[in-house]
Amino acid sequence: MATKKFMFINRKAPYGTVYALESLEVVLIGAAFEQDVSLAFIGDGVYQIAKGQSTDGIGMKNFSPTYKALGDYEITKLYVEKESLEARGLTLDDLMPLVWEDEDDDYAEKPSIRLVSSAELAEVFDDQDVVLSF
């Protein structure tokens, strides 16, 4: 089957609605189909990969560890819009340290999160074949 560039756009905070969780489920299937998968976190979507999520008090499953596993599925392009992060008073340090192992570089751990400006992200979007929004 052909390989296409799939972009998954995440614009909603986790837990208030199911979109973040069910988006992640599609992302994993996209990887299983060996597609060229990227994720973008825009607006409140940046909260999906915030560090230190603890859901004991709301009785819902904390699915944030799944983002850490994305590297194992060769999903290594997680774009975070700089303007969205800054508008929320956050920095990269507030996000989970997501990495992937580069087997062509002696399994060196490399960051999956790519902090990009709106203009840079617009260029990334411009290059996609299929865009799924959640």
Binding site: M1, V26, G30, F33, V130, L132
Partner: peptide
């Protein structure tokens, strides 16, 4: 059926639209 059907749709079709 499974989520694979969504990905397959995106691969096979010329255009993918999302209504939500």
């Amino acid at each position: 059926s499974g989520l694979g059907q969504l990905i397959e749709g995106g691969i096979i079709a010329d255009r993918q639209l999302v209504f939500g």
